[in-house]
Structure formats: structure tokens, C-alpha cells
Amino acid sequence: MIQIKNLTKKYGSTVALDRLDLEIHPGEIIGLFGPNGAGKTTLIKSIFGFVNYQGSITLDGEPITRKNIARMSFGTCEHSFFPGINANDHAEFYRDHFQSFDERRFAVLMDFFDLPRNKKIKHMSTGQQNQFEVIMALSQGSDYIFLDEPFAGNDIFNREDFYKVLLGMLGPDETLLLSTHLIEEVSGLVSRAVLLDKGKIIGDKQIAELDSENAGLIDYIKDAYSYKADRVFQALEQLSPEGE
């Protein structure tokens, strides 16, 4: 379990994360939702220690260091592959550096996405690069997989296939945290939704709970952000010339 307690992150005087608490349990598929700037990326980067923060983050009770950090993997829209080498060389690198690198999964996913093995990653299309980024995160052999907006630039068919592959592939104890703005698309995929806004968690709900309440995820999310359906209308009204 990953336990986050009282996590605060400031960039200068801007508060990116505000005394945030969160527990991530084995086997969960978590959708991390929130508008741009809500702190989704900062939260993930804090967990990995890629940014400094205040508060405590532990993995099964231990602080996250080089000793246990390989139990987590990270695929990001910023990309973290090595642009100058090809897929086979990546596999070799991961084999050398991650004991639990999943050779089979790597091969299956490479075939599934039909990615070339001998092409430098920087020469692939953006869509292919995103796929490769995700492949490496999934194949590292980690227990906790974090994907941050992994599908920017991929078409919907690609994404839908990908969700299916994910579901077929993940073991019962593998945990996935998916940060995305494609809420509708992943609403059936996730087992839990965590809603972030202005550095705070404003909603955290198991889908099973929502099901019992007969409520849909989208409505729950709209409620949490107190989405005002007549917002557009009001804005237009204010803009319209006087006297009309």
C-alpha cells in the first residue's frame, strides 16, 4: 500500500498540493481526475520523489528510496524513454536494471501495438511514442503503475483497444493509477475515482459504492466540482447587449 499523509507542495508562493492524504491499495485501478493545474502531475511526481515536498509518503510502511522505488513505474506524456535508442535496446536496458522486467509482456504489447523493434524511438510518430512509453511502464514489472495523461495524441480506437488490453493483462495485485481528462472513456475501466481540485482531494469514491447508490460516475464528478449546467447560459446572458 502506498500511503500519503499531509502532503504539501509549494512552487514559490503557489500551493500545488495542500495537506493531501491518500491511500493506494494493491489491485486498484484508480482514475485520478481533475482540471489542468489541479495537481495531478505534481502528486505523482511527489510519490516518486521527483520533486521536493512536505509530508510523508510510504510504500508498505517504508519511505520511497532506491531500495523500493522500482516497485513503481511511471509513464508520462512528457515521455521518459531514451529517444536515441530502439525498442530492443530499451528491453536490454530494463533487463539490466529492473529485476522483475516482464519480457513476455513487453513482447506481447510490442506486437499488439505493432511497433517497430529496430527504429529509434525519436523517429516514431507521437502516437507510437505514447504507446511505447506506456509499454515500458507496464513491462517494468512493478506493483504500482502510474500513467499520467498517457494518451494525448492517440486516436480513440487505439485508446479503447488499450483499455481492453490493460484489463486483460493486469494481475489481481497490480495497481494502476491513471491520470487523465478522458473521464467518460475510462469510467467503466476504473474501480475507484479520486478527484483533485486546487491541490486538494475533493472526492474519493469506489465505483462499487456508486453502483450501490445507483449513481453514475459522471454525475458524481459533476456534483463534486459543483458543475453548473446553466453556466454557459449565464455567461452568454452577461455578454449580450443591454436592452435585449
Partner: peptide, 21 residues
Amino acid sequence: RSFAAQSRSNYVMKRTKSGFE
């Protein structure tokens, strides 16, 4: 700088067992 240019492969490097790598 090559670990932060074009892509952030230093994120991968930070997950390797040896910090000296």
C-alpha cells in the same frame, strides 16, 4: 543534459537500483 532533453529519461534513471549508474 541528454537525460532531460527531448524526454525525461532521468525519471527512469531515478528508479534504477544504483544511483551511480
